[in-house]
């Protein structure tokens, strides 16, 4: 605590001195915490990554998502919270066309990714999935592959052969996933030899290596201990500088800690969608209020 809080006194005096000279207090710092978040927080949604238009999803007869519309901003973290079975995972999986892989699933509505309808007639879902990476609840590095192979698998199996390029992308992805320092000495060990938290970061690196525009995370830390969870959350903060991140979590505190926008789902419907600080300090909807205060759900 001391280390982080010991801003030297010169700042305090500096501020006073500056005001003496300029005769006014420079209040340029915006009122939001964390300088980097300002662009996405301070201004309304600048660039839209996903535009979802009256989306409905079914599993057989069961409708999991009901007529849902929202816009997900680019280069920001959007959290989706809600009780189990509220359709949040289904919604997430509709964003990279994974929902349709479930037998008996159906979907209606439109989703545009940077303006392009990802359910358009000529769209190859495989290509959409390359643009929209996904990290799952249970870390799942491929057991037959080394750490190196795990990271590069998305590239190799998509036809990248150039070894130098592969090595570069692997290192970059591992660095972005904050794992490089921990594994660069033994890249040839099996991916499954890592600890749970490391495995999850390996999966993040694997998803990043194909250079997607968006990263979907389906409860990425729910199987991890608090320290590993913190690491993942810190990582999310770093990644949002370059990526659009949508995270599904049943952990409200996690949504509060690491997202810029929060959407509250209930029974397949979007109940409230706002800036995270608004949702957690002053939600507009009674159901949201009850959920974030822990009165139900």
């Amino acid at each position: 605590m001391n280390a982080s809080l010991t801003v030297t006194q010169s700042k305090r005096e500096g501020a006073a001195v500056k005001t003496k000279e300029s005769q006014s207090l420079p209040l340029t710092r915006p009122a939001t915490p964390g300088g980097k978040e300002t662009t996405s927080r301070g201004t309304p949604v600048s660039e839209v990554a996903f535009e979802v238009d009256s989306l409905s999803c079914w599993f057989g007869q069961h409708q999991a998502v009901q007529d849902l519309s929202l816009q997900i901003p680019a280069k920001a973290v959007t959290a989706i919270i809600g009780p189990s079975g509220c359709g949040k995972s289904t919604f997430l999986r509709s964003l990279n066309r994974m929902h349709e892989l479930v037998r008996g699933s159906r979907l209606r509505g439109q989703i545009r990714l940077f303006g392009e309808n990802i359910y358009g007639p000529r769209i190859d879902p495989t290509l959409i999935r390359r643009r929209v990476g996904m990290v799952f609840q249970k870390s799942n590095p491929f057991p037959t592959m080394s750490i190196r192979e795990n990271v590069t698998v998305g590239l190799r199996l998509n036809g990248v052969r150039n070894h130098i390029a592969l090595e570069e992308r692997m290192e970059k992805a591992l660095r972005m996933a904050a794992l490089w320092e921990e594994v660069n000495e033994h890249l040839d060990r099996p991916g499954t030899s890592l600890s749970g938290g490391q495995q999850q970061r390996l999966c993040i690196a694997r998803a990043l290596a194909v250079q997607p525009d968006v990263l979907l995370m389906d409860e990425p830390a729910s199987a991890l201990d608090p320290i590993a969870t913190t690491k993942i959350e810190e990582l999310i903060q770093e990644l949002k500088k370059d990526y659009t991140i949508v995270i599904v979590t049943h952990n409200m505190q996690q949504a509060a800690r690491c997202s810029d926008y929060t959407a509250f789902f209930y029974m397949g419907r979007l109940i409230e969608y706002d800036k995270t600080d608004k949702v957690f300090t002053n939600p507009s909807n009674k159901q949201t209020e009850d959920y974030v205060t822990g009165r139900f759900g």
Binding site: S4, V7, K11, A16, T19, K20, P33, G34, R257
Partner: peptide, 26 residues
């Protein structure tokens, strides 16, 4: 481990110090 939260706390402290400096000056 350095947390993003630490940066937010540092920002808060900086703001407080600015306010303190300003108060002293007043």
């Amino acid at each position: 481990m350095e947390r993003h939260f630490d940066q937010e706390l540092a920002d808060l402290k900086e703001n407080l110090l600015r306010m303190a400096g300003f108060t002293e000056q007043s």
